[in-house]
Nucleic acid binder design. Structure first.
Length: 575
RNA sequence: CGGGACGUAGCGUAGCUUGGUAGCGCGCUUGGUUCGGGUCCAAGAGGUCGUGAGUUCAAAUCUCACCGUCCCGACCA
């Protein structure tokens, strides 16, 4: 490709809309342009990168035995009603109407479609296992599109769905995808790692997310440095000890705490009750029912865990009015010891199990209770792990301290079980002639997000540093004189032709611009190797090879093509 | 949806407090100049100052509403 014939609108300055580095570079390097919030056009150079990532994904999916299909993006709402997600996922569903005023939805994902397909086509255990995948544009009515391609209204996703006759089969399918994902992200040049994950509204029993380490990531992950334990903060647990038991005190005792409405205030004089001897009582509305959540005073509730453990589809903190209606007191004086209506369930964090000599609100504004013993004084409906892990806590597996890191989620694998196959009737006959629902798994990769994650992880002050496997062009030839028939240009053309013939993806910067401009652009765009040809070095019969981010090497002009191929082969080998 | 910031040429911005001719840099066009890390000189083109109402003799500037963008929270690949 000749640069002058191509379209690479680089920008000297970053558009004000871009906040994070990868977003700025995406725009500056001429890879994408924004149409409007959360909607982007891929320019020719960006599309080349996108195709490379897709190719890697396809190769690895095919290698893992998955079969490519292409499903409609436009879907009938009926199958969403059947799965129950017309309600539970309604916030992200784009809905459109046709001329007859019939409603359709734009697919945010395809469990309903693929399960409908399986219901019609898979009738015997002999047809399984099967894994279908596609690379397709998804639509999600995001509350807040953000960070360029990271969170968009429309994005490209690779989604795969496995169907198995047995649970063991489903686990094997899951494992295959897990392994394929690790290969895919490694080939893309990403520093990535899998973490245990919550299953969210998709549902299911077993789940891992593939994370890319990045300060700007939207996810927080707890990792053990010593063993392999890593989990999304929404799911992470630690081996922190339970609350120390003390001498069982007398009966609970009410005491006045006028104006004291926070854990911290109560921990100070004159009351001086340390936060770890307080019980924090939270009123939540779980699927429109009030519930109580008990957490130790120095811990933070993890709402994702609350949803997962209680099975609630939506939870939110109650308003002060709702607190008064439920317990007769305002936040700051709430407790679960007395005046809790029988219909209100009480969920307590494991760390409070057996705790005594605790202090909590008295359900009377301006009063607290001391000498509270959880077993004796509170009717706990169920004990769950509900707290949020903090950095430095001991790993539950090996006891070494946990670290908290930020990361970008680029892939997610789920073992779904039979949730969708039951609802959408995807059943088969097993060897005994019994009808059973297929055991499913689903596996997503955010392709466009992966694209940006590579940039986020691979750059320097001058621009992007593309890993060879996803670079838009492997080599940029930069002649410093573009006068036709000049020795420099003749050599550039010759090397360009030879590399092209050899199947190397090469771009020839034939623009009549000053060297500085061309160097800056090549660095910004981030081609893995630059081959510069100038009059000075050519006087010695040499040209320059400069790996992006590396040192210049001078090589004989006649050896240039061989050296380039050597470099690329070594680079390809290394990844 | 709640909280915050902002909207002036393709991009980055000044001007707004204190109302009166819309300015600069980059990019773009033309001519010249230069030619190993975003040359220099000259001449140009390009603006409903987000939209709509209002106040005023007069609004980019003051008021209100709406739209949009970005940041913080809930959603997720």
């Amino acid at each position: 490709m000749r640069w002058s014939q191509y379209f690479i609108p680089t920008l000297k300055e970053s558009p004000a809309e871009a906040e994070i580095l990868s977003h700025k570079l995406l725009l500056r390097a001429g890879l994408v342009r924004k149409l409007t919030g959360g909607l982007y056009t891929f320019l020719p150079l960006g599309l080349r990168v996108l195709r490379k990532i897709e190719t890697i994904i396809r190769e690895e999916m095919n290698r893992a035995g998955a079969l490519e299909v292409l499903m409609p993006a436009l879907q009938p709402p009926e199958i969403w009603q059947q799965s129950g997600r017309y309600e539970t996922a309604r916030d992200v569903l784009y809905k459109v109407k046709d001329r007859a005023n019939k409603e359709w939805v734009l697919g945010p994902t395809h469990e309903e479609v693929i399960t409908t397909l399986a219901a019609g086509e898979i009738s015997s255990y002999r047809q399984m296992p099967k894994n279908f995948y596609q690379v397709q544009t998804k639509f999600r009515d995001e509350i807040r599109p953000r960070f360029g391609l990271m969170r968009a209204k429309e994005f490209i996703m690779k989604d795969a769905y496995s169907f198995d006759a047995t649970d063991e089969g489903a686990m094997a399918s899951y494992r295959k995808m897990y392994d394929a994902y690790a290969r895919i992200f490694n080939r893309c040049g990403l520093r990535n790692f899998p973490v245990e994950a919550d299953t969210g509204v998709i549902g299911g029993t077993h789940s891992h997310e593939f994370m890319v380490t990045a300060e700007t990531g939207e996810n927080e992950v707890a990792c053990c440095e010593a063993c392999q334990y890593a989990a999304n903060i929404e799911k992470a647990v630690s081996g922190i000890p339970p609350t120390a038991a003390r001498e069982v005190g007398a009966a609970t005792e009410k005491f006045a705490t006028p104006g004291v409405v926070t854990i911290e205030a109560l921990s100070k004089a004159p009351h001086s009750v340390p936060a770890n001897r307080q019980v924090k009582t939270l009123v939540y509305i779980a699927d429109s029912q009030p519930i109580l959540v008990l957490i130790r005073g120095d811990d933070q509730l993890n709402e994702t865990k609350l949803m997962a453990r209680t099975g609630a589809v939506a939870v939110r903190p109650a308003t002060p009015e709702e607190c008064v209606a439920t317990l007769g007191a305002n936040p700051g004086s709430l407790g679960a010891v007395a005046n809790v209506p029988a219909t209100v369930r009480i969920f307590a964090d494991e760390r409070l199990r057996g705790a005594n000599d605790m202090t909590t609100g008295a359900n009377e504004d301006g009063f607290h209770l001391r000498n509270v013993s959880l077993d004796r004084d509170i009717k706990v409906t169920a004990w769950f792990d509900l707290r949020t892990v903090r950095a430095g806590e001991p790993c539950a597996k090996c006891g070494k301290p946990l670290k908290l890191r930020r990361a970008i989620e680029v892939g997610h694998v789920f073992k779904l079980g039979t949730k969708y196959s039951e609802k959408l009737n995807a059943c088969f006959l097993d060897a005994d002639g019994k009808s059973k629902p297929c055991v499913m798994g689903c596996y997503g990769i955010g392709v466009t997000r992966t694209f940006q994650a590579v940039i986020e992880q691979s750059n320097d002050k001058d621009g992007i540093i593309w890993p060879l496997a996803v670079a838009p062009f492997a080599v940029c030839i930069t002649p410093l004189v573009v006068v036709k028939d000049s020795a420099v240009m003749q050599l550039a053309e010759k090397i360009y032709a030879e590399l092209t013939t050899a199947g190397v993806e090469v771009i020839l910067d034939d623009r009549d611009d000053r060297p500085g401009v061309k160097f800056k652009d090549a660095d910004l765009v981030g081609f893995p190797l630059r081959l510069s040809i100038g009059e000075k070095s050519l006087a010695n019969g040499e040209v320059e090879l400069k790996p992006r981010g590396g040192e210049i090497a001078f090589v004989k002009a006649e050896e240039a093509v061989a050296k380039v191929r050597e470099f690329l082969a070594a680079r390809a080998q290394a990844t």
